[in-house]
Amino acid sequence: MAGPGGLAARRGSARGVVISDDWPGYSLDLFTYPQHYYGDLEYVLIPHGIIVDRTERLAKDIAQDIGDNDIVVLCVLKGGYKFCADLVEHIKNLSRNSERFISMKVDFVRLKSYHNDKSMEDMQIMGEDDLSDLRGKNVLIVEDIIGTGRTMKALLNNIEKCEPKMIKVASLLVKRTSQPDGFRPDYYGFEIPDIFVVGYALDYNEYFRDLNHICVINDQGKAKYRV
Rank of each mutant, 00 (worst) to 15 (best):
D129L: 05
G147M: 09
K161C: 08
T148Y: 04
L173H: 02
N138F: 06
L156P: 03
D133Y: 02
N138W: 05
Q124T: 15
L155K: 01
R176S: 03
S171T: 05
R150Q: 12
V139T: 04
T151H: 09
M166T: 14
D122C: 02
V139G: 00
Q124K: 15
I145D: 01
M152R: 07
K165H: 10
V174H: 06
G136R: 09
C162V: 07
G136F: 11
K153S: 01
D133N: 08
E143N: 05
L134W: 03
R150H: 05
C162P: 00
N157I: 14
G127W: 06
D130M: 11
M152K: 04
M152L: 11
V139M: 01
R150D: 13
A170V: 04
L131F: 12
N138G: 04
I125L: 12
T151P: 14
S171Y: 02
I125T: 14
L140N: 01
I146Y: 03
D130I: 12
V174F: 11
K168P: 00
L140A: 00
L134V: 01
L131G: 02
I146D: 10
I167R: 03
G136K: 07
K168G: 03
A154L: 13
N157Q: 15
R150G: 11
E128D: 15
D122T: 02
R135W: 02
T148P: 06
L134H: 03
I141K: 09
T151S: 13
R150T: 13
R135H: 15
N157V: 13
E128K: 14
K137W: 05
E128M: 13
V169S: 04
Q124G: 11
K175C: 05
L131N: 06
E160T: 15
N158Y: 14
L172S: 04
I141H: 13
G149A: 10
V142P: 03
A154N: 08
S171K: 04
L156W: 07
K168A: 04
A154G: 11
L172F: 09
T148V: 11
N157E: 15
K161I: 10
K175F: 13
M123D: 10
D133E: 07
D130G: 13
N158C: 15
K165G: 08
N138E: 03
C162D: 01
L140M: 01
L155W: 00
G127E: 11
I125M: 13
G127M: 07
N138C: 04
L131Q: 08
T148D: 08
M126C: 10
L131H: 05
L131V: 04
T151R: 08
R135C: 07
K137Y: 04
G127R: 03
T151K: 06
M152Y: 02
M123N: 09
M123R: 08
K153F: 01
M152P: 04
K175I: 12
M166Y: 13
I159R: 03
L173R: 01
T151Y: 11
D133H: 06
D122M: 02
G149Q: 10
V142K: 01
